[in-house]
């Protein structure tokens, strides 16, 4: 990929991360490093341990063993909100926004929280970080719909709002769980294009999981493949595509490819 003008430094370092559920090793000694300005895709069939892996990085799950470092600092055992404070933005497979608030208010909330003003009791919320919120919305192309309630927004638009929200804390790392799930094919490409641009602009590293292989191979700088909790392949898209082990999983078990519900 072009456009990586920034210095590439490791943002996220994961070392032999493991977690079992009732004797089953959901994630087994997975290690990888993510650099700034890089989009790293994590793929694998259902039950491969993607979600578990993801949730251990964002703090929702505690690993049994291993290390997770953000910008060289261990974030193991921190709750999600503290991890967020250290500069990790998130989007969810099923969008999570505040339905009773407008688009702009959603972004304002994230900004308010980032600036530790969430316990302010007096000045109306709508006067907090108004311009900053509009700037972010402009960047994701949602500035014209700023006053609509999130509860009535189209799904694709919600995804953009989420992206804007995720950028509010000026993150160094973006965790995107199935960023294009539930979207039409054209929308998917648009969203990923937007994400790529923003990531390069702001020198952010992205770890994402994705089912749509077209998206993965079009936008990921690197791909890691998990199967039964283990990292079986890792590298640039071309290398992974030609990896025999990967082909075995996906072609051997062809039923998995692209058939999962979004």
């Amino acid at each position: 990929m072009s456009g990586a003008q920034h210095e590439c430094v490791p943002v996220l370092e994961v070392e032999s991360l493991s977690r079992s559920f009732g004797g089953v090793r959901a994630v087994d000694r997975v290690s990888f490093t993510l650099f700034s300005s890089e989009l790293l895709a994590m793929i694998g069939p259902n039950g491969a341990g993607k979600t578990t892996c993801f949730n251990m990085v964002n703090g929702q799950l505690r690993p049994d063993a291993g290390a997770v470092r953000l910008n060289g600092r261990s974030i193991l055992g921190l709750p999600p909100r503290s991890i967020w404070r250290l500069g990790v933005g998130r989007t969810f497979q099923i969008t999570a926004t505040f339905a009773s608030m407008t688009v702009r208010e959603n972004v304002q909330m994230a900004l308010v929280s980032y600036h530790r003003r969430s316990r302010a009791l007096w000045r109306p919320a709508r006067d907090h970080y108004f311009d900053e919120a509009m700037t972010l919305l402009e960047r994701v192309g949602m500035d014209r719909q700023y006053d609509r309630a999130c509860g009535v927004l189209a799904y694709g638009d919600l995804k953009r709002v989420e992206l804007a929200v995720a950028l509010a804390n000026e993150p160094r790392l973006l965790l995107m769980d199935e960023p294009t799930a539930g979207m039409a094919p054209r929308e998917r490409m648009e969203l990923m294009q937007l994400t790529t641009e923003i990531v390069h602009e702001r020198n952010i590293g992205v770890l994402f999981t994705e089912h749509d292989m077209d998206v993965v191979f079009a936008y990921a700088d690197r791909i890691m493949v998990l199967d039964r909790g283990q990292l079986i392949s890792e590298g640039p898209p071309m290398a992974v595509r030609s990896d025999r082990k990967v082909q075995e999983i996906y072609l051997g078990g062809s039923a998995v490819y692209g058939t999962e519900p979004a």
Partner: peptide
């Protein structure tokens, strides 16, 4: 009413609408 229109009130509603997102934007 002021409290509810202020960021504090919004934060409460945020927690009600989506606890998941609230945690993901650093709200305790």
């Amino acid at each position: 009413r002021r409290f509810l229109y202020a960021p504090f009130g919004y934060t409460l509603r945020a927690g009600r609408d989506s606890p998941l997102r609230a945690a993901a934007i650093g709200i305790d």
